[in-house]
Design a binder for these strands. Structure first.
Lengths: 303, 303
DNA sequence: TGGATACATAGATTTTAATCTATGCATTTT
DNA sequence: AAAATGCATAGATTAAAATCTATGTATCCA
């Protein structure tokens, strides 16, 4: 029913060279082997592919047709294996990552350094809030996902690669700054400006407060860190964001970080993927890149 | 190094159905067999092609790439086998024939009746003088050749399918017509108008004359039967042509056939091909057609 | 007419391919 | 928790694939 790729290869060699012996040599087999394979192939096709007149081999019409198809098939396979070699060798391929919104502040720099090492790789970076990322994780839509609060109801493999401290922020003129060591109980007297439920930041905050036996009172629930910073700087209240959401000189943004007991809330950025998933070589390379380089790159002068 | 077509087939089934068990059923094998084949294929590629999360199968990026190539390869093969089935079933294909120039008078009718039975067949009909046909025969450029005088220095297979009588012709007012039984010796007193050396007609004439211990004296040597007929009708002398070159009513062309001893020179139209050549199914069909139908068709009212 | 060349076949061997049944393990559903 | 579903592995069997050496036969060339 089907030929073997080897048979096609030998047949193509025959078509090119016009000689069974030559074809055999080209394919690294003995002449009888090639002869046999060609015979089998002809039988598979059910039509004579060539005839031998004297010591010369002539392809039949059917043989020429087969040669064309065989060439196409082997070329296709050749291209595919080269592509796969590239993937294995990390010179090309596609890397798809879903990250939680706060990660957008540092992922670009990590990606940039990865690009330098693997210039031909395509990266698709999906930025969503935690719920969105978890949904993609569940459906196995990405090579890797990045978040701080992996879901407990899905079996995953995880690797931490960077601290993700959540800090309290207040406007520069907020009364909180007059106190030097602020107890958490004092802090929660204010109603807070926080990320929405469904965000990782919010989940971490809720978990931390619950552990202290407290529930935060919410003034404003916002879908973006920028919106929170703007609101806090505008004097609408105190908030909590990841330190990564703040620039190195937060005062310039009109924000200060009061020293509050229990802060920063220490979480970690994690690489997360479904348990049992076999990472592609590229994904593995990127994971290793994060594990090894994240601290270095993000504490360098430019970061 | 190479996969098997079967593996590609199973993998495509997997890609379509998203389940190993389904793919196995589709390909008519047990689940473990499919599982094994897929594993082998992945190993051949050197890259994971899919991962199993829970009871769901997800193709990897590499898997999708392979699926595309596999689909192309199997489609190509599918098309090819259909084509070959057509060739085997004589519904399509190409038939290449080289015929000696005199055969052009009757080949069209034989081809027409063959077309009726095999309408999708392409025919390439090459018309040359005998030397040209022999050259093509030697190089095995055609499925079949048609001639009366096969070369003796090439080993060929032959089959006669039709008489090819060579007749003497003279103009209607030629003095030869006053004689009732013309001896050959009288005939050769005239200088003759004949086909060129290298034509089959000429060769047959030379052979026949040599057998009678005579050599024809040549007045005019022409490359076409039509030219000979015109010259003879114009009174330039007597000639010899195949009866096939004459219409049923030769008088209308200004020609008569004097009754000369030794005429007509009886030769046969032959199907000729190199010994050892394996005829394509179409060529075989056409050969059979000639052997069976030639007399019938050419003696029918229209011929 | 030898000698060289080229394809085919025969016979044998070794490998590997393809497949099965049985079973294990994880996940999903009831 | 039990039943059902789905993939993987183990172990075994059978088939056939791929290959070799040796040999036969036809052809071409000098």
């Amino acid at each position: 029913m089907y030929p073997s790729f080897r048979q096609l290869q030998i047949f193509l060699a025959l078509a090119d060279r016009g000689s069974v012996t030559e074809a055999a040599r080209l394919c690294g087999v003995t002449q009888p082997t090639a002869s046999m394979q060609l015979k089998d192939l002809a039988q598979t096709m059910g039509v004579p592919l060539f005839d031998v007149i004297g010591r010369r081999v002539h392809l039949t019409e059917a043989g020429r047709t087969l040669a064309t198809s065989a060439r196409m098939i082997l070329t296709e396979w050749e291209g595919l294996t080269q592509h796969m070699d590239g993937v294995r060798g990390l010179t090309r391929g596609r890397l798809s990552i879903a990250v939680v919104s706060t990660a957008k502040y540092f992922m670009p720099r990590l990606l940039a350094s990865f690009f330098k090492q693997h210039p031909d790789i395509d990266v698709a970076l999906e930025v969503l809030n935690r719920d969105g990322v978890v949904a993609r994780l569940r459906d196995n839509l990405d090579d890797l996902t990045i978040m701080s609060m992996p879901p407990a109801d899905i079996e995953t493999e995880q690797a931490s690669f960077l601290p993700n401290p959540l800090v309290a922020i207040a406007s520069l003129d907020h009364p909180l700054h007059q106190i030097s060591a602020i107890p958490l109980s004092r802090f929660v007297e204010d109603r807070l400006i926080l990320r929405e439920k469904g965000s990782g930041t919010r989940l971490a905050i809720d978990v931390a407060f619950a552990a202290a036996g407290l529930t935060p009172r919410i003034r404003l629930e916002l879908g973006s860190n920028e919106a929170i910073k703007q609101s806090v700087a505008g004097g609408m209240g105190v908030g909590i964001v990841s330190r990564h959401a703040l620039s190195a000189d937060s005062a310039r943004e009109g924000l200060a970080i009061p020293a509050i007991a229990g802060f920063p809330i220490e979480t970690m950025w994690r690489i997360v993927f479904l348990k049992g998933k076999r990472l592609s070589p590229i994904a593995r390379a990127f994971r290793d890149h994060l594990l090894i380089e994240a601290r270095t790159i993000l504490t360098a002068p430019s970061g």
